[in-house]
Computed example of a mutant assay.
Amino acid sequence: MAIRLPTVIVPYAGPCNENCRDLFVYLRPESNGVEVESVLMRVFMNNPAYKGHVKIVYMANLPGSFINDRKIIENHYAVKYHFASLGKKTFTPYMAQAFTQFFSVPFEDAHIVGAFEALRILGITPEELVKLWVDPFDMMTLNGQTIKHKDDLYIVNYDIPALLHKNSNRTDLAAMIFRTDLDWEGIHAMFGHMTEALIEEQILDPRIPPSRVFHFSKSPFEMLLDGCGYLVDKEYNAIPVMELTFAHWLLDRGIPEAEILGIIGNPIFRFPGYAGGVVEENLLTYTTNHTYEEALARWRSATSQVLIMS
């Protein structure tokens, strides 16, 4: 099968040197990309609270065959894929202790499996695994990994097989970068209005989380991961992550490129906890709603890095 090439509608404008925040936004393959794009843009172009505060500095349509050929999905979700593949073997001692405290089950005795093994055990499809309903207290997020408890199984990153399955050669993905001077409160309000508009247009079922239709970066470090692979130029070459605004900002403050790339590849760190203790957190989620300065300060407060990916 011939590989279809991306359509770059708005070439990347390059890093911002002013007081701005870049957010990577991409539309899930199961969404109607054109309709969703139209609704999202209409909100920030017509609403006085956002008009003049948001602009698109990158927009492209990435065909599924191109995404699969470049292994963009696998690379983007590399850490989550690792946990979904190996399950219990990937847990650190801290994760084992936190698991026991949350579920009140000894880690050694718990039947913890990765999502791919869960498919085999349960004999269901990836989409059925996503839709497998459990009570909120049977769900745990730990070091950026999601654990779903069903019967005697504890399933790690149940959504990864479906994410890989949905991105076929026949599906496209729309990717954008929103550049804004809004603070995080304003950003979340804007995406809240976008969700309401999608529901009003009957594009989004109100019972379905908006994250099933579109994703946006929720922290500076997550923005770097979101840019990996999805950012291409008109010659279809991947634009280096160092060209993203936050990476440029970090470089200007003396953080070496190797360290920045190392954070993306192994984002789990140990931080000082209460009463002299230690906590482990995924830096991408641990810096949610942080400014660039706050995100850098939090990373600098880490006592060590947990190397999950070799």
Rank of each mutant, 00 (worst) to 15 (best):
F24I: 14
P48A: 05
K131D: 14
L163N: 11
L132G: 12
S211E: 14
L244I: 12
E35D: 15
L163H: 10
H290E: 04
L204I: 02
M194Q: 13
F102A: 07
L244A: 09
V10E: 07
P209L: 00
Y77N: 11
S219N: 05
A258K: 12
V10L: 04
A258V: 07
Y286Q: 11
L182I: 07
D205S: 12
L244Q: 15
P240F: 00
Y58P: 06
T285F: 01
F137T: 10
G52M: 02
I264P: 04
E37I: 12
D183R: 03
T195D: 06
I3Y: 06
L231E: 10
T291D: 02
R28I: 00
D226W: 00
A189K: 09
Y286M: 06
E196Y: 04
T303F: 02
I160S: 08
T92S: 15
L27G: 08
Y77E: 14
I208Q: 07
K150I: 15
S31I: 00
N167T: 15
T92Q: 12
P126S: 10
G227Y: 09
L251W: 00
E108P: 03
G33E: 08
T180S: 04
H215A: 07
N143L: 00
L132N: 10
D152Q: 04
N167H: 13
T245G: 09
L153V: 03
D233A: 02
V134C: 06
N282I: 00
L296W: 04
F83Q: 07
F91W: 09
L284Q: 15
L173D: 00
I208K: 04
D226C: 05
F178E: 07
V279H: 03
E18P: 01
F66Q: 05
V241C: 04
L225E: 14
E235C: 01
V79G: 06
N32P: 14
A197P: 10
K148M: 06
M1V: 05
G64I: 01
T285A: 01
H290V: 00
E201M: 01
Y158P: 08
F191N: 05
L284A: 11
N17R: 14
R21P: 01
A197V: 08
L132K: 12
E294K: 09
K131R: 13
S65Q: 03
E127Q: 08
I260H: 03
N19W: 00
L251M: 15
T291Y: 00
L129H: 08
I177C: 01
T291K: 01
G33S: 13
I3K: 08
P6H: 07
V54G: 11
I124W: 07
M95I: 00
S217P: 11
D22C: 09
Q97L: 10
G262N: 06
Y50C: 11
F103E: 07
L129I: 10
E200S: 08
W184Q: 04
G114T: 11
F44C: 04
Y230W: 11
L283A: 12
E259K: 09
I268R: 13
S310R: 06
H76V: 08
L261S: 08
